[in-house]
């Protein structure tokens, strides 16, 4: 079974996770730029983070046989901090990089005017750079947030077929599906979606345009949730081809819209000497 986790924050995870993910079938991930838990206070902090997503993290992933791409953006939460918004001016030089496959995570957190501005500006950046966009839907006041998100997407230069709405659930999936956007679901141990509810959504809405992710980060989350969903789909009577479509071909099709997806992982050939991720001296 091959699995593509289209939304996971590997910066916050350990090499044990990479090893377990590989064993579970994960061969590709996309890591969206997001909030780090501790608020940033300057654009330079974002640049170091973006550089890590374009350098160190793909290197770590490759050592475990996993292809790593990223999406870059100013996240909705920090779009509200004027100390951080100058990041928007520097994004164009990052969005041309080879391993950037979308603009994201963008969207709403508290639905403020500053978030309106950042969302609209970054949808335009996606259109300008030939990239699709990963749009996070808010955790609070979710359905209202979804409608407001869809209004901004429809007013933007980015077609809905190049937009992925993420963190959907039973209350938002119908409106999201009607919009023509791609549909993303995050499966968590306690919050967001769970495995059984995800299978029910797939039964109701089918497997087209649906992506399932673990959204694993520094909080209580599980990078193997993608595999759990695959197993639950099979147990519920879905075919191997259905599983492959949801957990591989759909994310490949969506991020492939960038023209920059590369799924062959060159594994460094020095591992017999020890592994630099393990700090050397092993």
């Amino acid at each position: 079974m091959r699995i593509f986790d289209p939304h996971i924050h590997m910066t916050s995870r350990t090499t044990d996770d990479y090893e377990a993910m590989y064993a579970a079938g994960v061969r590709a991930v996309v890591e969206p730029a997001f909030w780090l838990g501790q608020p940033r206070t300057s654009p330079a902090s974002f640049f170091d983070y973006f550089d890590a997503l374009l350098g160190w993290e793909p290197f770590r992933a490759a050592q475990y046989g996993i292809a790593h791409h990223c999406t870059l953006a100013l996240n909705p939460k920090e779009a509200n901090d004027p100390r951080c918004t100058p990041v928007l001016d520097e994004l164009p030089r990052y969005l041309v990089k080879d391993s950037v496959v979308a603009v994201g995570e963008i969207g709403y957190d508290a639905m403020t005017p500053a978030e309106d501005t950042a969302l609209a500006a970054q949808l335009q950046l996606a259109a300008d750079h030939g990239l699709p966009a990963l749009v996070h839907t808010p955790h609070r006041d979710k359905l209202a947030g979804l409608h407001r998100t869809l209004d901004v997407v429809r007013e933007s230069a980015l077609p809905v077929e190049r937009t992925l709405l993420d963190h959907l659930n039973e209350t938002t999936v119908a409106a999201a599906a009607d919009s023509g956007c791609w549909l993303g679901f995050s499966v968590y141990p306690d919050t967001k979606m769970d495995t059984d509810r995800m299978v029910t959504v797939l039964r109701t809405f089918g497997t087209e345009r649906i992506l399932v992710n673990s959204a694993a980060d520094w909080g209580r989350s599980d990078p193997l949730k993608t595999r759990e969903v695959a197993d639950a789909m099979l147990a519920a009577g879905f075919t191997d081809d259905d599983v492959d479509r949801v957990l591989w071909r759909n994310p490949v099709a969506f991020y492939g819209l960038s023209g920059r997806l590369r799924l062959d992982v060159p594994v460094p050939d020095a591992l017999h000497e020890g592994n630099s991720v393990l700090r050397g001296g092993e």
């Binding site: 020095a270 017999h272 000497e273 630099s276 050397g280």
Partner: peptide, 9 residues
């Protein structure tokens, strides 16, 4: 020495 530590031939 760094090469030896990190496995660079």
């Amino acid at each position: 020495l760094k090469c030896l530590f990190t496995g660079v031939p």
